[in-house]
Design a binder for these strands. Structure first.
Lengths: 338, 338
DNA sequence: CACGCAATTGTTAGCGTTCACATTCAACTC
DNA sequence: GAGTTGAATGTGAACGCTAACAATTGCGTG
């Protein structure tokens, strides 16, 4: 019943019959095999378009054992950083002819990440890139499903899995040195949450510059990346004396700090200079426009696919680490101390 | 050669042999078929974990003709709105046991969208959700691959494809009425780019409230969602006389407006009130904190999956339209006119 | 105790591709 | 003109799973 609507989609055999060739010849045409006579090719192509045939990639994947799908495991893709990396990854993957299957986690504990990877492996992805900015997530990479190529982004540097990351330490050094160069005696720091690779790298970079310059190193104020955390930190900072320069571990927290200072009547950059991290699109239009550290997330995404494909094609996973340098963007939230 | 590393992954037959049953019984255990004796089940499960067996979903998809994968086509997932919807979609899909394969487009013209959908269809997705906020994208939905279930998000309302969207008109009405209620004579509008559904809805809502109240309707200033466009519009607005209230079509442009006004020494909200749209996480910490219209992207994502799964399960696609109401969030960028 | 019935398990045949291996045919070579 | 080559095509068998049906078992029933 309902024969006309339920008519099944044409398969290779239908095309073969229509074109008067064997199914294998159809397959050859589809896969650009060289040894097909031009007129045969034309006949097959005509049959394909006449029937509206589309090849079934699932069947193909079954026999080739390649799904041409890559998995991506990420933390909260609502955030600018992960979202941008995801974007770069997807673009690069599609350009290389791969599909991208995503899993977006609410929490990056090892069990969750492991589950996500297993889930993708079961689906038959050819490889995974794990955006693993937390130490806990890194642990999940120590026990990958047998032979699954993987790349860690912002990973933990200890798993043996190839990784690509942004040089957090250098970014923080750039920010801190910039403030010192402007004549500030020292720099306060509003950090990201503990356990995050980025937090630790930024703290390290900030601390190292201060120590090298022989400056006092104030206790960092711990945040959680949210503007609200920055706001709270900003209120504390405003109540302290002697604060002239603040380095916030991301732009959203810098915004919160800015807001708190504005509320308390502290002028930026006249009384306090602020530097952020990330260069989100909004930063340029904060009041004042934010000096920040630019991270090229797109490049990170592209590199990670590059590394992954190299593993897939070569069948081996030599450890490799790609570090992307950040850059300082000076705007109006920092000024020479008076 | 290299026999130990290249040993192929175990398949169902291996498990069957190990457990002393038929491969079909293994399949039944895996699929929670009720008629399996508990001790048989236990034996099979033991064999599975002993061998580290993982089922091959590709092979399963080939025979069931269901990949349990959903496709999502979206525009620039770097933006807060699309990223949030994507997140909601992915969460909902995974909860329902589906994988999510994404395609993130740089431009939403009909050809691009059609290609993306075809691409996903070839991969064998069970359905697609298309985040199609531009009219041009909507056109691609008029010719879907044969029998492919689809849902449009922020779609064009004319394609017959089930859709879920946020009530843009109502959101704009809320914003405009709020400003009128504060005693403003009329409200200027910085709009999104033409051809976008959201732009048009927001213009319509804004205009309708002004007209109903018998107020003058100023020419909208055309933007492109970016903070920079808002900044340019803000400079124009600052140069005009009689402007006391501005409704920007999104928060980023509102930020730009805010910045321009601040630069020109115009105080917000004392001299000019501003309302945005989206309620991005940063808005609360702008200077001043932004009054805006909240859109629940998460809910939109969840609803779209709901609609899609209903189509897949029922095998039919009765037109259905789900409208999610927005809400006004009053903060400090708006004030009673003096 | 033969019978029917339900629960449990096994057997066989695809799903739509690609791969490995024929086979055919024309064009060279000596 | 027999033999050799290579291009062009065809044939059959996987790939790893589920669906459909067949077979076996155990149990209650008249």
């Amino acid at each position: 019943m309902a024969s006309s609507t339920e008519r099944r989609l044409p398969v290779m055999a239908d095309v073969a019959r229509e074109a008067g060739v064997s199914h294998q010849t159809v397959s050859r045409v589809l896969n650009d095999h060289p040894n097909v006579r031009p007129d045969t090719r034309a006949r097959v192509e005509a049959a394909i378009s006449r029937l509206g045939y589309r090849r079934n990639l699932v069947a193909r994947a079954l026999v080739t054992k390649r799904s041409r799908t890559l998995g991506v495991v990420s933390f909260d893709t609502t955030l600018y950083g992960p979202a941008s990396m995801m974007y770069g990854i997807e673009q690069a993957a599609r350009t290389a002819g791969y599909f991208v299957s995503i899993v977006s986690l609410k929490s990056l504990d090892a069990a969750n990440v492991r589950d996500a990877i297993d889930y993708l492996a079961e689906q038959g992805v050819d490889g995974v890139v794990v955006i693993a900015p937390q130490r806990s997530a890194g642990r999940a990479l120590e026990s990958l499903p047998q032979g699954l190529p993987a790349v860690a982004v912002e990973g933990s540097h200890t798993t043996g899995v190839p990784e690509v990351c942004i040089d957090q330490v250098e970014g923080a050094r750039l920010a801190t040195r910039h403030l010192l160069d402007l004549g500030h005696e020292t720099v306060w720091h509003v950090s990201g949450p503990a356990d995050w690779m980025e937090s630790e790298g930024r703290i390290e970079g900030w601390r190292s510059v201060l120590e090298e310059a022989g400056r006092p190193v104030p206790e960092p104020l711990a945040g959680d990346w949210s503007p609200r955390a920055g706001y709270e930190a900003g209120k504390s900072l405003a109540a302290m004396r002697g604060v002239t320069a603040v380095f916030a571990a991301n732009d959203q927290m810098a915004l919160g700090v800015l807001r708190a200072l504005t509320e308390k009547g502290v002028r930026v950059p006249e009384q306090i200079s602020i530097v952020g991290f990330d260069d989100i699109p909004e930063s340029e239009f904060f009041s004042p426009p934010l000096t920040t550290v630019r991270q090229d997330f797109d490049v990170v995404g592209r590199h990670s696919i590059e590394l992954l494909l190299r593993q897939i094609d070569a069948g081996l996973s030599a450890y490799e680490r790609l570090v992307v340098p950040p850059s300082l963007v000076v705007r109006s939230s920092t000024a020479r101390v008076r």
